[in-house]
Design a protein around this nucleic acid. Structure first.
Length: 309
DNA sequence: TAAGAGGAATTTA
DNA sequence: TAAATTCCTCTTA
């Protein structure tokens, strides 16, 4: 299995500190900054200095400023209409207070990192649905490429570059180097290239993640624990260190890092006191409901979906 | 010692 | 009201 491009798999913790102004914020801090100073509206991503570090820092910049999912939905059709103020920042998962500032420990960094990647993947998924394009840029028609360009330009306030990539299909686009992107679009070409890299990584590593099967995040219904677990399992690139399939066909999975899974669940449900003891109690409630059980050969931290997909 | 099991009361959406 | 949370005791590996 080929490793994904630098973007998603190698967001090194050190990179999180590249730009002090994009340090992750706690929910409280975000709320406090909710008044949204003008700098937020004028934010635009700085071109990465190098593909590797730039992309990593870029993720965090992105994570920090990304507007509400719904805000751009309405805006995409008139993306160039000029009235695109970011609205309330997306409610990001509450990040442990120790994760803000320069004393981030490795644990918190990993947590932030996985959240960032998770958010990026989720947003790509949303974009796919709304633009009606596939997650794999290699499959894009020239029309799809234009849609993607328009969306990305709009999201990151990049100068229009659609014309520079006219008639290019996804395959040609993917084959282009960062330098070629820069040549076609001196302003923002590198950022576009970085974004394409993210999409390429996502589509090569997250096979099947766009099927939306357990994408409960936009259903309006409160998420169930079993759905959440499936969500994590569907995104091994982001959460494989925490939870993974042992036998996907049989629905058998293993929680590799119980504390982290519990923490993520607590973040999702806004239950800061969540821990594995409580999470596992909830899992056990599923036994009599026939949703999850222990596998025939019981192992610690290993469970099985009764009705695997 | 962490995980597992399950009772029971409480909270939440 | 269902699902989840919280707290608990006891067992198991």
């Amino acid at each position: 299995m080929g490793s994904a491009s630098p973007g998603l798999s190698n967001v090194s913790p050190g990179c999180l500190l590249l730009f002090p102004d994009v340090a992750p914020r706690t929910g409280t801090e975000k709320a406090a900054s909710g008044a949204m100073g003008p700098e937020k509206q004028e934010w635009s991503p700085s071109p990465p200095a190098t593909p590797e570090q730039g992309l990593s820092a870029f993720y965090l910049s992105y994570f920090n400023m990304y507007p509400d999912d719904s805000s751009w939905v309405a805006k995409v059709p008139e993306a160039r209409a000029g009235e695109d103020h970011p609205e309330e920042p997306e409610q990001c998962p509450v990040i442990d207070s120790q994760a803000s500032g320069s004393t981030l420990d490795e644990h918190s960094l990993e947590q932030v990192q996985s959240m960032v990647v998770g958010e990026v993947l989720k947003d790509i998924e949303t974009a796919c649905k709304l633009l009606n394009i596939t997650a794999d840029p290699g499959d894009w028609s020239p029309g799809n490429v234009q849609k993607w360009l328009l969306w990305t330009e709009h999201q990151y306030r990049l100068p229009p570059a659609g014309k520079a990539f006219q008639e290019l299909g996804g395959k040609e686009l993917c084959a282009m180097s960062e330098e070629q992107f820069r040549q076609r679009a001196p302003l923002g070409g590198d950022v576009l290239h970085a974004h394409l890299d993210i999409w390429k990584s996502a589509s090569t590593s997250e096979e099947g993640w766009t099927d939306g099967e357990v994408d409960s995040s936009c259903s309006g219904q409160p998420i169930h624990l079993w759905q959440f677990l499936k969500e994590l399992l569907l995104k091994p690139h982001s959460y494989g260190r925490f939870i993974r399939w042992l036998n996907k066909e049989k629905g058998i999975f293993k929680i590799e890092d119980s504390a982290q899974v519990a923490r993520l669940w607590g973040v999702r449900k806004n239950r800061p006191a969540m821990n594995y003891d409580k999470l596992s109690r909830s899992i056990r409630q599923y036994y009599k409901k026939g949703i999850i059980r222990k596998p025939d050969i019981s192992q610690r931290l290993v469970y099985q979906f009764v009705h695997p997909v």
